[in-house]
Design a binder for these strands. Structure first.
Length: 830
DNA sequence: CCCCAAGCTTTTTTT
DNA sequence: AAGCTTGGGG
C-alpha cells in the first residue's frame, strides 16, 4: 500500500496526526474518534514513506487483544513487515526485556510472575514472619499499598527513610521483607515487571541505550491510564531530548476516559505531556464515528459536570438517532428481566443479533441476577472477566505445580501444592522444611530436595532436615521426586500440555477429583481439561514454546482478551462485563444497568471528589460504547450481602438532558415492593409460600438499619425477609433452567453412580491404548452424537491435537459449542 | 494430620 | 449467599 492509499478516508485532524513529522506528538482522541485507526495508520505511513523501519517500532497497547488487532490491521496494510514490529502491552514488553536481561538484575531467567493473589499470599507470610498483626494490617491492604508504592517507583529503602508515622514504618518493614522474599523466590509481581524494567535501565545505561538504539519510535495507546512507572519506562526508552540519539514518541489518549487511578494511573501524564516534551504537538480529534448524536449528547452532558477538564465536545454528522431508553425496575431481578425481554424484542423487531448487544454493570457481583434471567430466557451470553478462569482453585493449583517445575525457588507455588492433594505434609512438616531453609539460607524448594536426598545436602555442607517424622520424611521425599520427574520431562522439551497431563496423573490430583463426591469437582475436572487444551492450543500457535513461555502467556492474559470475535459466529452471544472491561470496545446496543447512587457511582467513591470524578468518567466510558441504541436502567431495590436495600437513581442519570431519554417506566412502586419483595431468588414473591416467622433476625437488622430513614421503617412487617426464601427454595431450583443443562438433582445423583468415575477411568485406560494407535480419539468420530454429563446431548464438530491431549469441539443442543479434552471429559457416544 | 462445623468477611474497578 | 478461615474432635 502506498502513502496516498494509506491516507485515504481520513479527516483533517486525523491526517495531520498520521503525517506529523516532529518528534513528540500527543493525540487527544475523544471516544470513537478513530484513535486506533490513527495509531495504526501513522505506523503504516511512517514505514511506507521510509521514515521508519518496522523493527524500530514499539507500540504499546492496553490489552493483548488490542495488540493482536493492531498487528492484524498493520499486516493488512504492510504485509509481512508487521511481524517484525514490537506490539505489546507494557507488561508483556517488560517481561520480554526482563527475561532477556535477567542477569543484570541478578535473577534467573526462569523467574515466575506473581499475580495479585500470589502477592497477597506472600504478604501474608511476610506479616507472619515479621510479627505484624495481620488483623490491623491485612495482607490485602498491605499488598495494595506496596503496589501503590511500586507504581510510583518508590523503593523500599527510600520509603523506609521517609516513613514517620507508625503505619508507614510498619509498611516499610513489610515492603522490605516482601521484596526480599520475592527475590529469593526468583519472582516478580505485576508491578515489579514495570518497576524493575525501569530500574534496569536506570542502573545499566548501556542496556537502556541498546533498546533506545533499536526502538526509534514508541507509540502508546490509552496514555491517560499510564502510571508513574510506565511513564518513566517510556522516558527511559525515548532518552533525553538533548541527546541526538533520542527516540520519537506518539501518545494517544483521552483524559475523560481515565478510569484506572486505583491502580496508580495518573492523568498528569497526559495533562503535562506538552510540558514533559517541550517541542510536542497536540492534535485533538473530536469527530465521533461511533455513536448517534443523542448518545453523544448524553455522554457530553455527564462528563461536563467534571471540573477542571480540558473542554472537549464530541460531535457526529450521523444524525440524532434513537432516543435513549430509560427503565426503572422494582428489583434487580426485574431489571434483568427487562433487559432479557428487550433483547428478544430487539432481535424480533429490529433485526439485531445477540452479539450486537452488551450489558454493562459497575461491579462483577451484579452479573449474577442478569445471568439468571438470561438463562431462563434462553438467551446465549458470555460473561467477560469476573471470576476468571485462571483464578479458580484447581487452575491455580495446576499452575502452581507448573511454576514449581519451572522455578524451583518459587515458594508461593510450592507452599500452595505441597499438600494438595493431601499427601501427609502438614503444617508441622512444612515448618521443619522452612526452618531448614532459613537455617541454611536456601529456598523451600532446595529444602525439599535436601529432604529427598540427604546425601546431596551433605555434599553442599548442610545438615539433614530436622524435625520430620519418618512418615513426613517419606511424604516429602516422594513429593520432591515428583517435582524432579516433572522437571525432567519439561527439560527435555515436552510440550506444556503433556507436562500438565503428567502432573495431574502423577500428583494424584486427577485421582482426587475423579473419586471425590463433591459435585463441584466434576466441573473442576472439566476446567483442568480446558487448561490442558489451552496449552495444546498454545503449542499449535507457538510450536517452540516452552512450559515457561506458556506460563508467561497465562500470567498476562486479560479479561478483554476473552471477548468473542464478532466475525466468528452469525448470532454470537450477548456479552456481559464491567464498565472497566468495556473500555475500548463498542457495540450496536448497550445496556448500562444499576444506575443507582451507591452502585454507580460506587459507594466507596461518594465521599471523595476525585473518586467521584473518576466514577463520572467511568459513566462517560459506559455511555460512549454504544453505537445505535443505549439503555439505562436502575432498580429501586437491590440485594447486596444477601439483603435487599432501597436504592435511589444515580446522580449521573440526572445529569443527562431528559429530552434525549424515553422513559419506558419512570417510577418504581417502592411501597408495594417493600412489602412483598422479600425474596430475590426464583421469583417466589408471586407465588409466595410466606411463612414469616423465621425472619426475626434479619427483620431486626434491617429495621435498625433503616430506622434513620423513617419512611421505610413502617413498610416492614411480617412476611418480609428470609422466611419466604427458605419456603420457596424447597420447591424451586434457582437458575440453570433451560439452556439444555441437566437439572441439578439429576446431575448430582448421576455423579454418585460409578458411571462418571468409570468414564474417566475408561478414558484413561483407552488413552494408553491410543498412544499406540496415535489418534487419541477414543473411538469418537466427527458427526457422532454424544451425551455429556452436564451439557446434555451434542454432536462432534471436529478434533484438535492428538494423543492424550486430543480435544473435541462439540456443539450441544443448548447451542453452545464446547471444547473438551476427550481423555477426561464425561462424554459418551450415543 | 485430617475432617468437619461454626463463624466471619465479603464487593469496586484490573494489567 | 458463598467462600474462606478457625478451632475442636477423631
Amino acid at each position: 500500500m502506498d502513502a496516498d492509499q494509506i491516507l485515504n478516508g481520513l479527516n483533517e485532524p486525523q491526517r495531520a496526526a498520521v503525517t506529523y513529522g516532529g518528534d513528540y506528538l500527543l493525540v487527544v482522541a475523544g471516544a470513537g474518534s478513530g484513535k486506533t485507526r490513527v495509531l495504526t495508520t501513522r505506523i503504516s505511513y511512517l514505514i511506507a514513506t521510509g521514515v521508519l523501519l518496522p523493527r524500530e517500532v514499539l507500540a504499546i497497547t492496553f490489552t493483548n487483544k488490542a495488540a493482536k488487532e493492531m498487528r492484524e490491521r498493520l499486516a493488512k496494510m504492510l504485509g509481512a513487515a508487521a511481524h517484525s514490529m514490537w506490539i505489546s502491552t507494557f507488561h508483556s514488553a517488560c517481561v520480554r526485556i526482563l527475561r532477556a536481561e535477567h542477569e543484570a538484575l541478578g535473577m534467573r531467567s526462569t523467574f515466575t510472575i506473581y499475580d495479585q493473589a500470589d502477592s497477597q499470599r506472600m504478604m501474608k507470610q511476610v506479616l507472619a514472619e515479621e510479627n505484624i498483626d495481620s488483623k490491623t494490617y491485612t495482607p490485602k491492604a498491605m499488598a495494595f499499598r506496596v503496589s501503590d508504592l511500586k507504581n510510583e517507583m518508590i523503593q523500599p529503602e527510600e520509603f523506609a527513610a521517609s516513613a514517620t508515622s507508625k503505619d508507614d514504618v510498619i509498611l516499610a518493614r513489610a515492603y522490605t521483607a516482601y521484596q526480599n522474599r520475592l527475590r529469593a523466590a526468583n519472582a516478580f509481581d505485576f508491578d515489579d515487571l514495570i518497576m524493575q524494567a525501569v530500574l534496569l535501565f536506570r542502573r545499566h545505561p548501556q542496556i537502556a541505550e541498546k533498546y533506545r538504539r533499536r526502538l526509534r519510535h514508541v507509540l502508546v495507546d490509552e496514555y491517560q491510564d499510564t502510571n508513574v512507572a510506565q511513564y518513566q519506562l517510556v522516558r527511559a526508552l525515548i532518552g533525553e531530548d538533548r541527546d541526538p540519539l533520542h527516540g520519537k514518541l506518539t501518545v494517544v489518549g483521552d483524559a475523560d476516559q481515565s478510569i484506572y487511578a486505583f491502580r496508580g494511573a495518573t492523568m498528569r501524564n497526559i495533562q503535562d505531556f506538552e510540558h514533559d516534551f517541550p517541542r510536542a504537538a497536540t492534535i485533538v480529534l473530536e469527530q465521533n464515528y461511533r455513536s448517534t448524536q443523542n448518545i453523544l449528547s448524553a455522554a457530553n452532558a455527564v462528563i461536563s459536570h467534571n471540573e477542571g477538564r480540558r473542554a472537549k465536545n464530541l460531535w457526529t454528522d450521523s444524525g440524532a438517532g434513537e432516543l435513549l431508553t430509560g427503565y426503572v425496575a422494582d428489583s434487580e431481578r426485574e431489571e434483568a428481566s427487562f433487559v432479557a425481554d428487550e433483547i428478544d424484542a430487539l432481535r424480533d423487531r429490529c433485526g439485531y443479533r445477540y452479539k450486537d448487544v452488551a450489558v454493562f454493570y459497575r461491579t462483577n457481583a451484579q452479573s449474577r441476577a442478569i445471568e439468571d434471567m438470561l438463562v431462563r430466557a434462553g438467551i446465549p451470553y458470555r460473561v467477560v472477566g469476573g471470576t476468571k478462569f485462571y483464578d479458580r482453585k484447581e487452575i491455580k493449583d495446576a499452575l502452581a505445580y507448573l511454576h514449581a517445575i519451572v522455578n524451583p525457588d518459587d515458594a508461593v507455588a510450592i507452599r500452595r501444592i505441597i499438600n494438595e492433594p493431601r499427601r501427609g505434609i502438614g503444617d508441622k512438616a512444612e515448618g521443619a522444611l522452612t526452618a531448614h531453609a532459613r537455617r541454611w539460607q536456601i529456598s523451600l524448594g532446595v529444602a525439599i530436595a535436601d529432604a529427598a536426598h540427604p546425601d546431596l545436602a551433605l555434599g553442599e555442607g548442610r545438615g539433614a532436615v530436622e524435625g520430620l517424622t519418618p512418615r513426613a520424611a517419606k511424604a516429602v521425599t516422594e513429593f520432591g521426586q515428583l517435582l524432579e520427574e516433572l522437571r525432567e520431562q519439561a527439560a527435555v522439551g515436552a510440550p506444556p500440555a503433556e507436562v500438565i497431563e503428567a502432573m495431574l496423573e502423577k500428583s494424584g490430583y486427577l485421582q482426587m477429583l475423579s473419586t471425590s463426591h463433591d459435585p463441584q469437582d466434576e466441573g473442576r475436572l472439566e476446567n483442568l481439561a480446558q487448561l490442558s487444551s489451552v496449552a495444546a492450543e498454545f503449542s499449535l500457535s507457538t510450536p517452540d514454546g516452552t512450559l515457561a513461555d506458556f506460563l508467561d502467556d497465562v500470567a498476562l492474559v486479560s479479561d478483554t482478551d476473552q471477548i468473542p470475535d464478532p466475525q466468528a459466529a452469525a448470532e454470537g452471544e450477548v456479552v456481559l462485563m464491567t464498565v472497566h472491561t468495556a473500555k475500548g470496545l463498542e457495540f450496536p446496543v448497550v445496556f448500562v444497568t444499576g444506575m443507582e447512587d451507591g452502585i454507580f457511582p460506587h459507594l466507596r467513591a461518594m465521599e471523595n471528589l476525585d473518586e467521584m470524578a473518576e466514577e463520572r468518567r467511568l459513566a462517560y466510558v459506559a455511555l460512549t460504547r454504544a453505537r445505535q441504541r443505549l439503555y439505562i436502567t436502575w432498580a429501586a431495590s437491590r440485594s447486596q450481602w444477601g439483603a435487599p436495600h432501597e436504592q435511589i437513581s444515580s446522580r449521573f442519570l440526572q445529569e443527562i438532558p431528559q429530552a434525549v431519554i424515553d422513559w419506558r417506566r419512570d417510577e418504581a412502586d417502592v411501597a408495594r415492593r417493600s412489602l412483598f419483595d422479600g425474596d430475590r431468588w426464583g421469583g417466589s414473591s408471586s407465588w409466595g409460600r410466606r411463612t414469616g416467622g423465621s425472619a426475626a433476625g434479619s427483620y431486626g437488622r434491617r429495621a435498625s438499619k433503616w430506622s434513620d430513614d423513617g419512611d421505610f421503617a413502617p413498610a416492614f412487617g411480617a412476611g418480609t425477609g428470609r422466611g419466604s426464601r427458605s419456603g420457596a427454595s424447597s420447591g424451586f431450583v434457582p437458575g440453570k433452567l433451560g439452556g439444555g443443562s441437566v437439572p441439578r438433582e439429576q446431575s448430582a445423583s448421576s455423579k454418585a453412580q460409578p458411571s462418571f468415575v468409570t468414564s474417566v477411568t475408561d478414558g484413561r485406560s483407552q488413552s494408553t491404548a491410543s498412544v499406540d494407535t496415535g489418534d487419541g480419539r477414543l473411538g469418537f468420530a466427527v458427526g457422532d452424537a454424544v451425551a455429556h454429563k452436564s451439557f446434555g446431548q451434542g454432536t462432534i464438530l471436529g478434533f484438535e491435537g492428538s494423543g492424550k491431549s486430543t480435544v473435541a469441539s462439540v456443539k450441544f443442543a443448548s447451542g453452545a459449542t464446547k471444547r473438551l479434552m476427550l481423555r477426561v471429559a464425561p462424554l459418551e457416544k450415543l
